[in-house]
């Protein structure tokens, strides 16, 4: 109820009709710029081959067909490593990498944002600075590390480095700082709660939007990871790599290529949609307190 009142209150006091119209027009224009190419991707995947190479090209599909998708699946079944293996690899790497990233980044971010220990400032500075160093040149040193650890050509080489992304920590730390109140933590500590308890039961629920963002970021990065310098065995290669091999077959596979783009983008978007519905839930229940 309180929420409804504030909204009405705000509209009366701080909002002009002209501003509302201007903002909505701008949103619709930007939205069209963002959405139309995505729509075109989907349209392309539903076009039969003769429509893909039609002149003049049309935006909308005239006789939609799923043939591109069935073609793609047929091509998949001809690979000499069973295609399910590529899918398993990608799902396994994405899930294991994301889980570790979430756990380690959040733990460290909580300590850096909410516990005043010596050294926390420069540790944080170094982590932020590291975001700005190019990863192409560091891959040589990383290759040395991987081979010293005997991790070359194993899942570990792909999963473990994903556990400590500077970006994930930075994101979590900024939210812990702005959204977790020190007063609540302090009273929990006075009640004898351990730091691990306050982290898990108090801080983490308060920054749910942040770690849902981290999950999306981490998952889509790993999901879209293609060929890696650490992996030689065909059995350990990813879905993205395999699908690119298939669609690299020239013009005859243009249909399958269009379908593969839709499949590759569908999964991160699905993960995002699921997490968004979660955000709405949280917002719904936390709306009570104001």
């Amino acid at each position: 109820m309180a929420r409804l009142r504030t909204r009405k209150h705000k509209v009366v006091l701080n909002r002009s009709v002209g501003g509302d119209i201007g903002i909505n027009v701008l949103l619709i224009l930007l939205g069209a710029f963002m959405f139309l190419p995505m729509l075109y991707v989907i349209m392309q995947s539903l076009k039969p081959l003769d429509e893909l190479w039609m002149f003049p090209p049309r935006f909308y599909v005239m006789s939609p067909t799923l043939k591109n998708f069935t073609d793609l699946f047929k091509l998949m079944s001809t690979s000499w490593v069973p295609f399910s293996r590529y899918i398993f690899n990608t799902v396994f790497i994405s899930v294991a990498g994301t889980a570790g990233n979430l756990l380690f980044s959040s733990l460290a971010a909580y300590a850096l944002a909410k516990i005043k220990f010596p050294g926390r400032r420069w540790i944080f500075e170094v982590i932020v600075l590291s975001l700005m160093f190019n990863s192409t040149v560091t891959s040589i040193a990383n290759y040395l590390t991987m081979s010293t650890l005997h991790w070359v050509d194993t899942y570990l080489a792909l999963i473990v480095p994903a556990w400590c992304t500077s970006l994930g920590l930075y994101l979590m730390k900024q939210f812990m700082e702005s959204s977790v109140s020190d007063a609540v933590l302090e009273s929990a500590r006075l009640d004898g709660a351990s730091e691990f308890y306050t982290f898990l039961k108090i801080a983490m629920p308060m920054v749910k939007p942040a770690w849902l963002t981290l999950i999306i970021y981490s998952f889509q990065g790993l999901w879209n990871s293609g060929n890696s310098i650490y992996i030689y065995s065909e059995q350990l290669k990813t879905f993205n790599y395999a699908i690119n091999q298939i669609v690299a077959g020239g013009i005859a596979r243009a249909g399958a290529a269009a379908a593969s783009q839709v499949i590759m983008m569908a999964v991160p978007i699905a993960v995002f949609v699921i997490s968004q519905s979660n955000i709405i839930e949280t917002m719904g229940s936390s709306g009570m307190k104001d």
Partner: peptide, 9 residues
Amino acid sequence: TAYFMIAPF
């Protein structure tokens, strides 16, 4: 505790 928390990362 703080050092334990940042250690894995």
